[in-house]
Structures are given as structure tokens and as C-alpha cells.
Computed example of a mutant assay.
Amino acid sequence: MASPSEPSYDQNRTSSWLVCKTCGTQFPTDDKTKITTCFICDDPRQYVPPSGQSFVSLGTLRASGHRNVFTPMPVDPERLIAINSQPKVAIGQRAILVRTAQGGILWDCVTLLDSETIARVEELGGLKAIVISHPHYYSTHLEWARAFRCPVYLAAEDSRWLTQQDARHQVFLTETETDVLGTTVLKLGGHFPGSLVMLFEDRLLIADTFFATPSGLGNWETDALGAVRERPSGMSSFSFMWSYPNMIPLGPDDLQQMWRVLKNYQFNSTHGAFPGLDVVVQTPGELKRRVLESMQIQIRHSGHGEHAMLKETASW
């Protein structure tokens, strides 16, 4: 992707640049008089903590014992590898390395990048692309792109939240559907205007374009005595929020737009932005039905009992 004349990746060049402690986004300077606040956290979808805005650097994170942990995901342990920074950095999201037949894709991004992480990713086949779901996970995506010399796919609608631009690496998606190395990247919108999900065969990587609820994660197959039971009806499996930390839900028209795209695709599992948020079902069509049911529950309980979305059905 990058031109042959581009300098080789050098982690020391940017090691002192400022990184927002709250969201993990990197700014291209180490001058704290130039960057006093993070405009991503000032956006009403995010927040500034009570202690106020503060910054760290990649160099400090590397020197303070932070490391990335690679965890094969049980649903497909050879091809889906979660990458999570420990101790927690910023929001605490995971990236997912998707090992397709055409090459590795990093779905979303974590802030921490070090030589150990680069070596481990290369052992697993390297990266040919990075796809970022929305601005809260922009983090240090250009560091990753330069290290692996690969493109980063971003929704064009969300470019205003970038702290850095690099035409050699950043590719802005304008279509609702984009093929990336055999996966299907879908623009659903909602949480952000360009919020993305990615379909890898029948696995839907959702970040927090929508979010698995506790009842969606619950085990409804057996009761306390081991008897088989049906999942109670009318339970939500997913929430759809404009702001997750501030608990502001999306309205029915946003959900309708998301469903217009998603209803055309089939999937048997969803994989969220954080560990422990995977929903896997065995019955074809069941999870898609649950997504629609969850949308309809949110619409109905927000006082829109006559909305057209309540008449939608999910087909397989």
C-alpha cells in the first residue's frame, strides 16, 4: 500500500506522542500545550472522566508492563484470534485477527503496539488489511498500518474524527457493502454515521455497532436441575445505542436503516468489542431473528408502538 520510498516503521519516532488515556487515540505530537483535550472524548457519545482529561504515550505503556494477549476464539480458534491489552488500556476493547484465505485482517484496533505484538502477528501470517468499525477504536491504527505496510479501511462518514491522515494507508469506504479479502464489510450506521460490521463466513463481527445484552448471553438451554427449557419469549439479546457510556439509545428510524442492510445477510454468531460478548447459536436463522426481535423491543418500549419496523420479519 505504501510507496517504496516511505521510511521503515520506527516505533521510537512516535513513542512520545500523546495518547488519550480515556479512549486510547493517538495525537501526532508530544507537546501538551498543543493538545489539552481529546475531541473524540468531548463528543457526547464519549466522556471525560471526573479526574479530567489526561494523556500518556506508547513509550510509557511499553515501559510500564502493558502487553497484548492473544486468545484463540472458541468458535473458530485457528482463524479468529482476539488481541486484548493487559492491564487495561483506555476503553479496553479487543481487536480480532481474522485469518482469511487471502490474508490476515485486523478487525478494529488496540492502542498498544510493540515489537512483541508485531512478531506474534507475523507468526500468525501478518496483516494485509485493517478495518476499523468506528472512531472510538481509531486508537493507533496508522502505527499498525505502517508497521505492517497495509491499508486501513474506514467509513468516509466518520473521517472528521481522525487525529491523523495518511493517504498512503487510509481507505475511505463510501459503499454500503465492501469486499475486503473475502470478508464483507457492511455499513450499518447508528452508533456513528458510518458504523461498520464485518461478516466472515457466518461470523458477524459487530464491535459495538450493536451490543450483546446479559439476557442475550444467558444460558437458556437447561434449568438448575438440568432439565431442557426453552428461552423465555420477549427477551432482548442486543442493545442499539447512540452512546453506550451515557446510555442514550438509538431511535426507531436508525434501527430501521440498520435492519434494511443487515436483513439481507445470514449469520450464526456475533462477536462484540469486548471479551465475553460472543453470542453463538446452532439453529439457522435464530440469531438474525433475535437481532430483529431486540430492535422491535427497543422500539416498542421507547413509545413507538405503530412504527413500521414492528411489522418486519426475519427470513433465512
Rank of each mutant, 00 (worst) to 15 (best):
D202W: 04
N246T: 05
P74C: 09
Q53S: 12
G218K: 13
T213A: 04
T176P: 03
T209Q: 10
I91N: 10
K32Q: 14
R229L: 11
V110Y: 01
F274R: 10
T213Q: 03
R120E: 15
V180M: 03
R45W: 01
L262K: 02
E177G: 08
H134W: 00
I83R: 00
A314E: 05
L292W: 06
L255D: 02
V281S: 05
K288D: 01
V89H: 00
Q170V: 06
R62K: 10
T60M: 07
L205T: 01
G194E: 01
R168Y: 07
S64W: 07
P74A: 13
G276V: 04
I299T: 10
I40D: 08
Y153H: 09
R289E: 11
I118G: 05
L277K: 12
H301E: 15
G216W: 04
G226E: 11
G234E: 06
Q298M: 07
G305C: 07
G218W: 15
I35Q: 03
K34D: 09
L277F: 15
K21L: 10
K34L: 12
D76M: 11
S237V: 02
S115F: 05
H136V: 15
R289D: 09
R99L: 13
H307G: 05
V280L: 13
I130V: 05
V180F: 01
T270E: 07
S233A: 14
T117S: 13
L106C: 05
Y9H: 12
W161M: 10
S8P: 09
N12K: 13
Y9C: 11
K21E: 12
P249Q: 05
V291T: 03
E143Q: 11
E157S: 12
G251M: 05
I248P: 05
Q296K: 14
S15K: 04
S139M: 12
S51C: 04
Y265Q: 03
T71S: 13
I81Q: 00
E201C: 07
A167I: 10
W107Q: 02
I297N: 04
L106T: 04
M309R: 06
T183C: 12
M295R: 03
L205Y: 00
S3K: 14
R13S: 14
S64C: 08
D254H: 10
L112H: 06
